[in-house]
Amino acid sequence: MNKLILGRYFPGESWIHQLDPRGKLVAAIYFIGILFFAEGWIGYLLLLGFTLLVMQMSGVSLKIYLRGVRPLIWLILFTVTLQVLFTAGGTIYFDWGPFTVSSYGLINGVFIFLRFVMIIFISTVVTLTTKPIDLTDAIHALLRPLRVVKVPVEDFALMLSIALRFIPNLLDETQKVMDAQRARGTTFGEGTLIQQMKTLVPIVLPLFVGSLKRAEDMADVMEVRGYQSDKPRSSFRQLTWTRYDTVSIIIMLLLTAMLMLVNRIGAYY
């Protein structure tokens, strides 16, 4: 449970920490976008270098980032394997029915692997260096234009912040219920798959009951304090866009230009 780093915030003073969450979020999504335009080794190396630089600047140790990749490693390897086995072209090393291992396949596999890892790293940078509440504010701010087409942006942002707010509570509660059931003789992670699934019922059910109860309480409290979903509201936390945020966006544009250039050079070889 404690190994999960998704949505966990590592406090720090780095440059990356201090960026405006809106800018950070846009930059990260933009970066993931341009990842798909990289061609050839040099392009990938450029982007990988940039990713590692950003990670270094965040001041969070590489170990933590690697832990973010771990839960997804099987999915990545599966995709990479498919890519390797089904891409033909170049020198063929191995051939068996529909499967071929070729030089193109291997190169593609490595690229896909790098792309996956970079996506995870960059999004981890954002979540590790931004308070969840700031991230919610950023999403709220970025979605605001959608209000024109009657999307309930406020409600959406509220739902998101409530969900994030209760993750730690839920983890605590899970631990408590697990302890209580272990004290009653449940052993987790033992026996056949069916047996293991059965031991989950005494955990999940109390959690559901608890969450429903809490949701009800929360709704009551919000009503009592006069919450209405369709009223305009101001915000206690104000996001401020600084020079550094503009600089970071410019850096992203420069990176794009460099990538295009590198792609062009690569095309000559």
Binding site: E173, D179, R184, V201
Partner: peptide, 9 residues
Amino acid sequence: FQFPEAQLF
């Protein structure tokens, strides 16, 4: 435990 009724399922 404290509030043991949370373990009922």
